[in-house]
């Protein structure tokens, strides 16, 4: 009997959580189109989510591009296909690694920060205080973060793409003996609009996931410091998993024709 009870509890919990998240998402998305719009808060969040994530995203993109070039060279040289290194690095970075690596890094940085901030506001009754001051907490706290993340992530990924390709260029010219101008030429010839734009679409979706789960976990944190800690961990774990799952679905959608 206990086995069934346990399965039932887990199943009910899963559906309850899914339902709650869906309602929260619906509330947040309708909040985007209803006035007032807090322009200043959106700008402030774009600074925090986008601009301050640049160093960490740039560094990871640089090293990822470099390591990608090294490994592709290793594999390609077995078949004498070294000349494909630039274009494979380009495709790998723009289609997959740029958005995914940036998404995961920003999830760790931003989803955690959002969940901790909003979670602390929840347990210190600051969110209730917003309601008593005629301010809708979803519109004031969630909507600016959602908008800022959806706008910032594609910009961040565009920059990460360039830095990643540059990382591949540095590795190829410095350790693999590629000629710099030939490498750049191959890269430019391989550059297509679809590769880059699909990565940017992914980035916008990842931005939405990061802000939404950061806010959702913060809003639902309970208790004191421990509750906020749990909310922060949950925000990072759930947003990372959802980013990877969404990446699979989007790749399926965008590239299988």
């Amino acid at each position: 009997m206990n086995v069934f009870a346990a399965i039932g509890r887990v199943t009910l919990g899963f559906f309850r959580e899914t339902g709650r998240l869906s309602l929260f998402t619906a509330d947040s998305v309708t909040g985007v189109v209803r006035p007032p719009v807090y322009w200043w808060l959106i700008a402030q969040q774009m600074m925090r989510i986008g601009y301050f994530s640049l160093p960490v995203v740039g560094l990871t993109a640089f090293f990822t591009g470099g390591v990608l070039a090294l490994q592709i060279y290793n594999g390609a040289s077995r078949y004498g296909a070294e000349s494909f290194v630039p274009v494979v690095v380009l495709v790998g970075i723009t289609r997959e690694l740029g958005p995914v690596i940036a998404g995961l890094m920003v999830a760790g940085r931003v989803a955690a920060a959002i969940a901790a901030e909003i979670g602390t506001m929840r347990v210190t009754e600051q969110i209730d205080a917003l309601t008593t001051l005629s301010t809708n907490p979803i519109k004031y706290l969630v909507v600016p973060r959602l908008i800022a993340a959806v706008i910032s992530m594609p910009i961040l990924v565009a920059i990460a793409d360039s830095i990643g390709v540059f990382g591949g260029y540095i590795a190829s010219t410095q350790s693999l003996g590629f000629n710099g101008s030939v490498y750049m030429n191959n890269t430019m010839n391989g550059l297509t609009f679809d590769d880059v734009s699909s990565g940017l679409i992914k980035a916008a979706v990842f931005g939405f996931i990061i802000a939404l789960l950061g806010c959702y976990n913060g809003f639902n944190s309970k208790g004191g410091a421990q509750g906020v800690g749990a909310a922060t961990t949950n925000a990072v774990v759930t947003s990372s998993i959802l980013i990877l799952a969404a990446n699979y679905l989007l790749t399926n959608l965008l590239f299988t024709k």
Binding site: M121, T124, E125, Q126, D128, A129, T131, T132, S134
Partner: peptide, 17 residues
Amino acid sequence: DEVLKKFAMLFQGAALF
């Protein structure tokens, strides 16, 4: 919202932003 505007609240921990 209009009715709720008649209210104000002092929270236990002050709940300042």
